[in-house]
Design a protein around this nucleic acid. Sequence first.
DNA 1: AGCACGCCGACT
DNA 2: GTCGGCGTGCTC
Length: 627
Amino acid sequence: MSRGDGHVGDEAPATPHTPALMSPSARSVADVVFDAPVEQPFSYRVPDDMTVGAGQRVAAPLGGAERVGLVVGVREESVVSARLRPITRLVDAAPLLGPSGLEFARFLAGQSLTSFGSTALALLPPPGPGATSAVASAVSEAVTPESPLVLSGSGRERRLLDRLAGPRVALVITSDVESAGRWAQRLEKLARVARLDSGADDAERAAGWHALATGRARLAVGTRSALLTPLPAGATVALIDEHEAAHKPPGPPRLHSRDVILERGAREALSVVFTSATPSVEMWWRCESEAATLASVTPARWPAVTIADPRGITRREALTPPVSRAMREALAAGRRVFLEVSRVSSGLGCDECGAIFRCDRCGVAFGWSAVRRTLTCWLCGAGRPPMDTCPQCGGRRLTPFGWGVERVEQSVRRRFPSARIARYDPEARRGRRGEDQRAAAAGAEVVIGTRGALKLFGPGALGLAAFISPDQLLGLPDFRAAEHTFALLWAAAERVHPEGELIVQSRNPSHYALEAVAQQDLATFYRAELKFRAELGYPPFRRLAVIVVRPRGDGLVERVTAALAGARQLVAYPPIAIPGRRGSRIVVKGGPDLPQVLAAALGDLLSVRRQRPGIMEVEVDPVEWPF
DNA sequence: AGCACGCCGACT
DNA sequence: GTCGGCGTGCTC
């Protein structure tokens, strides 16, 4: 993280090129990058009656079609090849990014091993009409750089609002449009709000971008496409729910909004504020090492938390007696019930003691294939036949995890035939059904759903939240399994009324994620999790990347493996065949400079990735494992 | 990424 | 004999 001067939107010239001053024979040539996996820019002739500057989007012919690209430089050439084709039209009336904005986008591209063009274009608002003013020169004021602030605990959003009430320019980044809408409404009470997310139409977004840049708007709300919005020094950038995986969705720009903001904040002396009930382990670690500040936590009123051990109850029964009892009580009191179901069933565990079988080397749960009868570590590739008895307790009932929504619903209906029960599993199928489900769930007393269903409930809205089988989440073959489970349990607890109850059915009742929620103590979780991460070399102590290679013909996997083996700073795990799809996955571990080292090691292989659906994808700092 | 060119299999 | 698979290379 280097501290530079200047910031994203500054010093973009309003008139980048003045033809009148050039000798009559000189022609302007613009270098343009596109959303394509090619690094080098393409050159175009700038028509005499057109003015373009770096940081401005234009449309130009490429490969037989007109495409939108970003101008990265303009040159004056006395001799221009006749083969150079002209720019077709302007997409933005003026540059959206200044020189430091372009430099920042280039830096980000290097971090994510994604082409400059793909990165920059993915971080800009969709092209729309209405942008008439150039990016303003920002007023530089002396600002003491502040350490990023993490607001946790109850009332964290209230405290963010208080901070945003001041005179400072502020940009609020959310993970999704729905949340952006909520924040826009809240902020409207403070000042006029420019919406930069897709909840606003294109013209409104473009106008908002410039309104913020020119100081005509003080507050703005957006998603990832607002991350490069020009801001004056001293402005605030807030990230809502910092721990959410949705801040790094699949596909370009393959960047976590948190990392973009931290880097931008350091470069431009911005005030960075994150909210999160359960900060990411990376962010917690920053706070511990004083690279960020955790705001003193005001604990919320917490519901009673019960860990119910389902061992010994029939395997046909989804609900333990404590859950049935609590359901009856909640329904009798007229309070709502949420039953969380984790649909994954990819691990093997012991029915007797609750142990989840893990790879000794990597600490992640083995994946279980019933067809092939093998346990496989998705990370290092180690495979083995299932054990006959549990190595921990000698138990003989070894079963795959498996409570799906359907089975739980049947089980619950048998027990509570007269309750209004609805299912909510929006991930299951797309389309209209999602809306129907939502409507049904809104009127139901009992909602049975996957983790996505939690957002149906506001704080304190539930009488009971019960997790049917969170061991399925804890047992995922992912080193972030505990972190994700912890965040989910905590979020559920916040949605339960203080007089209500949170029940977790688990065969691992002493797991630190469960204990931390029961005790309402964040540190209990992060202490144990950081120890695990340090011992086995996971983030934040080491960085990871996942390379997906599709091995068509020519031994590409072998070439990639050989290239990685040559880099001493990297640990590359052996390639693992991807179940279902054709291809292999290679996990790479490295230090803080992982992107640079990886790029150097792969060399040409990175640029030679031509193929139908991605011959080679490189995901740096993955949040969710590709299965 | 798209798209065209180009060389080997099964088919109206 | 063609139609079409996708491997290879290019796009200003």
